[in-house]
Design a protein around this nucleic acid. Structure first.
Lengths: 293, 293
DNA sequence: CCAAGTTACGAGTCACGTAAGGATT
DNA sequence: AATCCTTACGTGACTCGTAACTTGG
């Protein structure tokens, strides 16, 4: 199970085509065919159907493992390399959409006494930010999510990252003005189990977190939003496509909707600063090493 | 970063010797030397000092990643292979020490209506059991630990495993009879932060869990116990080497010590049945596939 | 000077590209 | 017939073992 083969397998499964994967990876398509054949004969299992090219049951299973493994491999390389890497004087920062408003403040705190530097900021889905901080594409990440007070966020545990909490907010449910519950001053999770929800895992609180908090099924997704634009998400909620949970301060900024505080059993909306240097102490210290000079 | 190279690196670091690692892995020592050289030149970092052979800062960093990666790789192979693997008629079961008393009952429930089969049982540290279930060495694992009520145990997230809760118990602190607190009918965690503790991560509740529950530092380990024998652990506690936390029922069995129920904020001692078939529904169904015929 | 890691070199293997060969729509 | 995957084959690269070399205690 050479990582090269895994990488090829993932590409083929994603493209649904050997030739497309080959083009993507810079191989000939014969090489891709050989890669898949090698994997299949190594595991003694058929991983893909041909014509059309679709992952089999075993292939789907392998796909679930492959991405984390490849990510971890990249993270390991990045982590080790970071130590020796010459400071670059550039800082790549990523943020999840709902953490973005806090970005300026967080950077000011960190960089206040810092020298000039080239700063790049990018907004991406929560898990994307975490993955890119792990793999070294980003130096720093700001992510938000639901967690027990003063508990670390549970990001997919592909690689150990250092997380520092930078804020906790009251979670608020976004409802269309016309919604029967829109006038309430507070809600309980149980009131909303049977509502229609928007599943926006990269942007809003993931439904899985709500489901776990509620200890119940429900929280059926009526719509899945894969973008990272909060305005669009709120517009969808305003149009009645479903409910979503935002941190309180963010909710106040949108006129067309009602934001009702929700009592979640022991959950707050938490924002964390992520960086990759496991043992590096304070983020300022890590930054200093990163930027020095 | 070929897994072969990583495996070699891990072996060298563990043995503290190229030659010993070579013997262990069935390579010549020249090959091992080349492996390490290849890794170092790939990462452009020195990973080991020679003479004596010790991991450098970067090497230690890599070691933290290597073990989980290799484990995940094994787990992926096992997971994919499991699907196609012919039922073996043999069942390898592992259990953490404190879950062992429940093993008979759990197996009876599962296997009651099952045909005869060859059964192997082994006791090992909690994380070992989880790792071996993931990598397919074990078919089924029974593990215990501290967790919020009806929350899954947080085992090291190397590989997704299906977990089914099979029991929750009141945690109890084991104290020598002569201990000033031994007469109490109940304790709070705060009473014990400054006590001397035994760190027995494979057997008792890991100190890290207590520390997290207490939201504090403290819980200094006076002694580390790496074995998996509950009797020995309790004997150490009885002799005053430190405190440890066991599930209530287990604590009653030992005469020389006092077991005092402890109120942990939202934590219970939980036992779970682990198996590897991610989507396989009930454990009975998984077992049926495993054993069929 | 001995134990232990490195370097040199050759043999076998492996992985890739080219090109020809099926198969499916 | 066209598209797409597989197979055959040759070349270049890689990996490992043997053996000579180097270094540190």
């Amino acid at each position: 199970m050479d990582p090269h083969l895994l990488r090829t397998f993932v590409a083929v499964a994603r493209h649904g085509s050997f030739s497309a994967a080959a083009r993507d990876l810079g191989y000939t398509q014969a090489a891709v065919s050989q890669h898949i054949a090698a994997l299949e004969s190594d595991l003694k299992v058929s991983l893909l159907t041909r014509r059309p090219v679709v992952a089999t049951e075993a292939g789907r299973r392998l796909l679930e493992h492959a991405a984390p493994i490849l990510l971890r491999l990249d993270a390991a390389r990045a982590d080790v390399t970071r130590l020796a890497g010459a400071p670059r004087g550039r800082l790549h920062v990523g943020t999840s959409p709902l953490a973005a408003p806090g970005l300026a403040a967080a950077l000011a705190t960190l960089l206040g006494p810092m020298p000039r530097l080239e700063l790049t900021v990018r907004v991406a889905a929560r898990e994307t930010v975490a993955a890119e901080v792990a793999s070294g594409t980003l130096d720093i990440g700001l992510v938000d999510g639901l967690a027990a007070p003063s508990d670390p966020l549970r990001l997919s545990e592909v690689s150990p990252l250092t997380a520092i909490g930078v804020g906790e907010e009251q979670p608020v449910v976004i409802l269309p003005r016309s919604h029967p519950l829109a006038g309430r001053t507070g809600l309980r999770l149980a009131d909303l189990i049977d509502a229609r929800w928007i599943d926006a895992p990269g942007t809003a609180a993931p439904l899985g977190d709500l489901r776990r908090a509620g200890g119940a099924e429900g929280f059926r997704a009526a719509l899945r939003y894969e973008g990272t634009d909060t305005g669009t998400l709120v517009a969808l909620a305003a149009a009645g496509h479903g409910l979503t949970v935002l941190p309180g301060p963010a909710a106040g900024q949108f006129p067309g909707v009602a934001g009702v505080p929700i009592t979640l059993p022991r959950l707050v909306h938490r924002t964390e600063l992520l960086h990759g240097s496991i043992g590096a102490g304070s983020p300022a210290a890590a930054l200093a090493t990163l930027l020095a000079g």
